[in-house]
């Protein structure tokens, strides 16, 4: 916790339960999420809206409750995602680093086991992810990409719907809570 955080959120209850996972849990689900995004939309086109790497990043960041861990996990997943995309390396990496960091920071103040909160956070971080990706594409890469707000909100909602059961599945990978 930083001094800034303490001043901003002085009275909120602190939930300090930290989940731990086996090392393989940090590798296999993100990999499956990325491969899902690469191959599944080829056969089921409408599933291309699913941003599973983001949801996995959010989950691990929330459950780890450590901003550093969240940032590192987000960075790693983002860079792998970058390497399989048409964008220069770093675009998704930066965005997911920020997502992981802020998700972990928020998780220190909330009960992240709550289904409603998971839904809201997934929705919020999808919008965050899309917005920052759009900013970087326009600002750093100079691409004239339009942010389609209604579509993004709908996709955010759908991703949040998927996130809830997905997080429940991922909960089974937890080994212990401290």
């Amino acid at each position: 916790m930083t001094g800034i955080d303490d001043r901003l959120l002085p009275d909120l209850p602190v939930k300090s339960k930290v989940s731990r996972f086996r090392p393989v849990a940090y590798i296999v689900p993100p990999l499956i999420a990325i491969l899902f995004q690469v191959y599944v939309p080829r056969f089921v086109d409408f599933l291309s809206y699913l941003e599973l790497p983001l949801l996995v990043t959010v989950y691990f960041a929330l459950m780890r409750r450590q901003p550093v861990a969240g940032a590192v996990i987000g960075s790693a997943i983002g860079l792998v995602q970058d390497s399989l995309s048409q964008h220069p390396l770093g675009l998704f990496g930066i965005v997911k680093t920020l997502v992981g960091y802020f998700a972990a920071s928020i998780s220190q103040r909330f009960d992240v086991e709550n289904v409603a909160l998971r839904f809201i956070l997934s929705f919020f971080f999808f919008l965050f992810n899309q917005f920052f990706a759009w900013v970087l594409e326009r600002g750093l890469l100079g691409q004239a990409v339009e942010l389609q707000v209604p579509q993004t909100i709908i996709f955010g909602f759908l991703n949040a719907v998927v996130a809830v059961p997905l997080f429940m599945v991922l909960d089974r990978l937890k080994t212990e809570e401290m």
Binding site: V38, Y39, P41, S48, L50, P53, F155
Partner: peptide, 14 residues
Amino acid sequence: VIGTGTGANSRVVY
């Protein structure tokens, strides 16, 4: 075609 690019609404294919 064996796959698509990552990212929502990606319009690249492998």
